[in-house]
């Protein structure tokens, strides 16, 4: 079980989503990907995609306008 952090701060849509999709491909089931974002539309499309793909998702608000989307690869 490893945890990978993906720094997408300062990146606008759709870059965080594309990067998160690529990063998750390289992980094993049970691994955790933490996507750091500060673009509010990525706060919607990244979790939407991950939940749709069947992974476990949690969103943490780390600061004003800054979030961490925690994705646990489920399959």
């Amino acid at each position: 079980m490893k945890e990978v952090t993906l720094d997408c701060l300062g990146e606008a849509c759709p870059v965080p989503l594309v990067k998160a999709q690529k990063a998750l491909e390289d992980l094993e089931v049970g691994d955790v990907l933490v996507v750091q974002i500060d673009h509010s539309c990525a706060m919607k499309n990244v979790p939407d995609w991950a939940r749709e793909a069947g992974h476990n998702v949690e969103i943490e608000e780390v600061d004003d306008g800054e979030w961490e989307v925690v994705i646990e690869k489920a399959k």
């Binding site: 701060l9 300062g10 500060d38 509010s40 004003d64 306008g65």
Partner: peptide
């Protein structure tokens, strides 16, 4: 709307490419 949601942030420019 972002102020009242306390979501205001001045974003950094990361690279020249951006």
């Amino acid at each position: 709307s972002v102020l009242i949601a306390s979501g205001f942030k001045i974003k950094k420019i990361k690279t020249g490419k951006q």
